[in-house]
Simulated assay, not measured.
Amino acid sequence: MVNFDGTLLGDETAILNYDNRGLKFGDALFETVRCANGKLFFWEDHYFRLMASMRILRMEIPMAFTLEFLEEEIKKTIEANNLTRGSARLRITVFRKDGGLYQPLTNDVSYTMECHELESPFYIISEDPYEVELFKDYYINKDMLSNLKTTNKILNVVASVYAEENGYNNCLLINTDKQVVEAINGNLFLVTDKKIKTPPLSDGCLDGIIRKKLIEIISKTEEFELQESSISPFELQKADELFITNSVLGLRPITRYRKKQYGNKVGKNLLGRLNAHARLG
C-alpha cells in the first residue's frame, strides 16, 4: 500500500501522471526513515531536514505538515503494509504539484509514502567484502543544493552503473576541486589512528542524518579526534578504515580500495553507539 496525500492506495494504482514535476524536472525531495516495531529512527532530524530543504527550494509547506501529522501518516502506511511489528524502510517523497515548465504554476506540494521490509530491527555490521573505486566522469558541485536530498540524482545513477559494469560494490564521488565527497549512497568517513575525518558540507556532500549523529557521538568521546575537512584521493590509501553511512544501513565498512585493504574495528565501535542512540532517540 502507498500513501498519496493521506489516502492509502494499492501498489498497482496509477498515482502520478506525465505532468508530475518530480518526473519532469527532478522538482522533489525525499527522506528515507528506518523503522523498527513502530519506532522511527531519528525522526525529528529527518523532519527538520525535510522542512529546511523545502524552504530552500521555495516549496509551500502545508500548515498540516507538523512533526506529529507526518509521523502518524508514516505509521499509518507501515500498519497498512503489515510491518508494525517488523523492521522497514519508509520513503517519503515531496514534490511540487503538477504544471508549468521550469517556472512552476504553484509552489503547493503533494507527497507519497512507501515502505519495504528490512531483515534486522537495528543496524548490523557487514563482514562481506566491499570494494570501491573513484568515479571521475562527472563531479559534485560545491553548493547548498548538493547538500539536499533531492530526486535529482543522475550522477549517482550513472556512477552506480559504472560500478556494476566494473565489478565494484560502490563508487566514491568527487567534487569540482577533485576532493572526495561521498559514496553513491551515503556519507564517507576516514579513520587514521585516532583521527576520524568526514568532508565538510561546503565540499558538496549530503547533509546526512547518520553523518550528523556520528559527528555528535565522536565529538563527545575522548578516544577519537573528529575533523570535518576535505579528503584528497591520496589520503584514501593511507587510512586505516573507510566507511559509508546512511539512514538505512547505518554504517557500511569499505574493505578494499585499489590495493589497500581496510579493517573495521572503529566502525564496529561506532555502530554500537549509534544503535544505542537509535534506541534512546
Rank of each mutant, 00 (worst) to 15 (best):
N147H: 01
K149M: 07
K149I: 09
N152F: 15
K153Q: 14
I154W: 12
N156D: 09
V158I: 15
A159R: 03
A159I: 08
S160E: 10
S160T: 09
Y162W: 14
A163E: 13
E164W: 05
E164M: 13
N169W: 07
N169H: 11
C171I: 00
L173H: 11
L173T: 09
I174C: 15
N175P: 07
N175A: 12
D177N: 15
D177W: 14
D177H: 14
Q179K: 12
V181D: 06
E182N: 05
A183Q: 01
A183K: 00
I184F: 03
G186Y: 03
N187L: 05
F189P: 01
F189M: 00
L190T: 07
L190K: 04
L190R: 02
V191Y: 06
T192N: 12
K194F: 14
P199H: 11
D203W: 06
G204E: 06
G204S: 07
C205T: 11
L206S: 12
L206H: 12
I209P: 00
K212P: 03
K212I: 04
L214R: 03
L214C: 09
S219P: 01
K220V: 09
E222P: 07
Q227W: 04
S229F: 01
S230N: 09
S230K: 01
I231V: 12
S232W: 11
S232V: 02
F234Y: 15
E235Q: 14
L236C: 07
L236A: 05
D240P: 11
D240Q: 10
E241W: 09
E241M: 10
L242G: 06
L242V: 06
F243C: 06
I244Y: 02
T245P: 00
T245L: 07
N246I: 07
N246W: 08
V248L: 15
V248Y: 07
V248S: 13
V248G: 12
R252F: 02
P253C: 00
R256Y: 06
Y257G: 04
Y257D: 02
R258Y: 15
Q261L: 15
Q261S: 15
Y262I: 06
Y262W: 05
N264G: 00
N264D: 12
K265G: 02
K265A: 10
V266I: 13
N269V: 08
L270S: 01
G272I: 04
G272M: 08
N275G: 00
A276Q: 15
A276E: 15
A276I: 15
R279N: 10
